[in-house]
């Protein structure tokens, strides 16, 4: 077991290093990204330009530059931005993390509740219209482009109906939980709902189908034959079995979202989280910030992947041989 975890960990490090090298190479292969002239200012003298280039170590060979950047990022942790000179990258990232966590955790609570409730309802309801209706809503949920939904929500709550129904909706942005819990809640309410729609759609569909599959298994049929009530079968066996799938799915989704996959939601609602930071740094071609956010994001994604693998390995020893 330990060797399996060890192998997984070293694979993780390998993946992270590969990603950082690729990001670095792609960045410098892009034409026009040399930050020296942008930092030096418009119309800068050629000598000034060279001095700026030197001060950012941009006149050194690529491998040296890469090693130096990694050293500043991980060892001395004083890597600074290419755009906002002097702005350290790591504090920027750590300041953005609470906003992303607030967004993702809140949305996750909504989608888990909605997903589990409607998923079970769809699989168990006696009424004929409920399952297709929920199925239809689930399909709409997974078919909505999140950025478009966000913009439409903004259009309605910030403008069209802002003077009547949605007078209470605060302007876009993020307010820290410790600053003002009520404002924190109000600012995040619509971002939560918007982000949750997609995942609620996915979870409803997955849960419903899992329950249906379990319900048709032989051992359930045996239970039923023994005279157990439908309710008891549903809650004791079917739901419990299918929740395992939900938990592992949740692990992957949560890792990806916390790592910055909520980028579009954050951009549309102006929430200054990791996704927005990534987006802004990409727009600015600010490599140090790009590198930090990418490392952070890939860590979460890869770590959650590995964690799910390890959990599976604990549950099912055959996986370890693979």
């Amino acid at each position: 077991m330990l060797t399996f975890i060890g192998r997984r960990l070293s694979a993780m490090v390998f993946v992270l290093i590969s990603i950082s090298i690729m990001v670095f190479l792609i960045f410098f292969a892009t034409p026009g990204v040399d930050p020296a002239a942008r930092i030096a200012g418009r119309g800068a003298d050629q000598q000034t330009l060279m001095q700026v280039r030197h001060s950012f170590e941009l006149d050194r060979p690529l491998p040296m530059r890469y090693i130096s950047m990694m050293k500043h990022l991980f060892v001395s942790q004083d890597l600074t931005s290419y755009v906002n000179r002097g702005a350290k990258v790591i504090p920027q990232l750590s300041q953005a993390i609470p906003a992303t966590f607030s967004l993702v955790i809140g949305a996750a609570i909504i989608w888990l509740f909605a997903g589990i409730f409607f998923g079970i309802l769809a699989a168990s309801s006696k009424k004929k219209w409920i399952d297709p209706t929920i199925g239809f809503l689930g399909i709409v949920g997974i078919s909505l482009p999140v950025y478009w939904l966000g913009e439409v929500v903004n259009l309605i709550t910030q403008s069209k109906l802002h003077n009547s129904v949605f007078k209470w909706v605060p302007p876009l942005g993020y307010v820290g939980l410790s600053v003002d819990p009520w404002q924190w809640f109000l600012h995040l309410l619509f971002p939560w709902l918007t982000l949750a729609v997609l995942y609620a759609g996915i979870y409803v569909r997955v849960l419903r189908n899992e329950i249906m599959v379990v319900m048709s298994e032989d051992y359930i049929k045996t239970e039923r034959a023994k005279g157990a009530s439908e309710k008891r079968i549903l809650y004791k066996h079917a739901t419990r079995m299918s929740l395992i799938t939900i938990v592992s799915l949740f692990g992957l989704d949560f890792g990806a979202l916390v790592g910055g996959y909520a980028l579009l939601t954050e951009v549309v609602f102006g929430i200054q989280g990791v996704g927005k930071l990534t987006f802004d740094s990409l727009q600015n071609f600010d490599l140090p910030v790009i590198m930090a956010t990418v490392m952070y994001a890939s860590f979460f994604v890869v770590f959650m992947n590995a964690l799910v693998d390890v959990v599976y390995a604990v549950l099912d020893p055959r996986v370890r041989r693979v």
Binding site: A40, G41, R42, G43, A44, D45, T48, Q51, V52
Partner: peptide, 8 residues
């Protein structure tokens, strides 16, 4: 500080 206008 290598001001952008130092040379101009």
């Amino acid at each position: 500080v290598s001001s952008p206008t130092a040379g101009s």
